[in-house]
């Protein structure tokens, strides 16, 4: 961790919930990006976390914009900086709802156009800011305020959608592995064009686990193979260190499920389906990395 700069761009006066992992991630994202960076933030938890006017917890400019508009707004900003000859990093920091649901059109457009920016989706698998309603990123079986009986459909595979745009760089990350995230942000920002990082961001009130278990929850997501860390540079897949071991011998899925209130009373059939999905995902990515697609 010695490589990570001491400078802080996210001060300790945020309005985040206790145990919030997305603000933890943002801290490392900004350390990696440095001061010549702008955050573009659609409606999401970060709209609240940054603080209330006239105060701000952020030490980089933050442009707040409407829910569906982040990627498009960043497109315009990136082109303006290019027109002015400035090399400022334009980083979208958006939740899963603003990415996989309402913002996906603008995201797709910005990637298709080759916009020079970094889009980060921090994924807490529901509309957290408004009190945990289901999003397209909510996993199968998870209870939210709009899926009180558990979500009947699976999580939208955002990464494969982004992958279909052939970006020069995309990666997954998790709040429990900040060094991995830090390196990925640095690498992303060293590449010209549209970059994408998808961070799994466990959420204590939303997932219904005790706040002190935020790091553990992220680790379990990776160790069980539920969340696989990887990078894809110009299409070439590389599984990241923490997931390599997990994919060979994943921890039992129940270890991850058990501690989360949102998965309470899962039916054996749903649990079985979830297990199959984890296995399929591991298999698909392992085969791809080994070149046996």
């Amino acid at each position: 961790m010695s490589a990570i700069p001491k400078e802080e761009y996210l001060y300790k006066c945020t309005s985040a919930c206790a145990g919030c992992s997305s603000s933890l991630c943002l801290r490392y994202v900004l350390k990696a990006a440095g001061p010549d960076s702008v955050l573009v933030v659609p409606a999401c938890c970060t709209s609240v976390i940054q603080g209330i006017y006239p105060g701000t917890a952020m030490n980089v400019p933050v442009y707040n914009v409407a829910f569906a508009a982040a990627a498009a707004c960043a497109s315009g900003m990136s082109e303006a900086f290019a027109a002015l000859g400035r090399e400022t990093n334009v980083i979208v920091y958006a939740g899963d709802g603003g990415t996989v649901d309402i913002g996906i059109q603008a995201l797709s457009g910005a990637f298709e156009r080759g916009t020079n920016f970094l889009y980060i989706c921090y994924d807490n698998e529901a509309y957290g800011n408004t009190g945990m309603q289901r999003s397209g990123a909510t996993p199968l079986g998870a209870r939210t305020t709009t899926t009180p009986g558990g979500k009947p459909t699976t999580k939208k595979d955002l990464d494969r959608i982004v992958e279909a745009h052939n970006p020069p760089y995309m990666a997954t990350a998790c709040s429990a592995y900040p060094l991995d995230l830090y390196k990925k942000v640095q690498k992303a920002l060293s590449i010209e064009g549209p970059k994408f990082i998808h961070i799994l961001a466990p959420c204590p009130p939303g997932w219904r686990y005790p706040t002190e278990k935020t790091v553990e929850m992220g680790k379990l997501a990776v160790k069980t193979g539920t969340w696989i860390l990887y990078e894809r540079e110009f299409g070439k897949l590389a599984i990241s260190g923490p997931s390599k071991a997990a994919m060979k011998r994943p921890a039992p899925l129940e270890d991850y499920i058990r501690g989360q209130g949102r998965f309470k009373n899962l039916s054996p059939e749903t649990l079985d389906l979830m297990r199959q999905q984890v296995q399929q995902n591991i298999q698909r990515l392992s085969r791809e990395e080994a070149g046996v697609c």
């Binding site: 442009y63 508009a69 498009a72 497109s75 303006a80 027109a83 002015l84 156009r113």
Partner: peptide, 26 residues
């Protein structure tokens, strides 16, 4: 000029907003 062929009008105005606050005429 930098010409952004956006994918919708919502994004057209969003891009203008980003560009304008970025410091250029839009």
């Amino acid at each position: 000029s930098r010409y952004i062929p956006v994918e919708s009008e919502h994004s057209a105005m969003a891009a203008c907003i980003g560009a304008s606050v970025g410091g250029v005429r839009t």
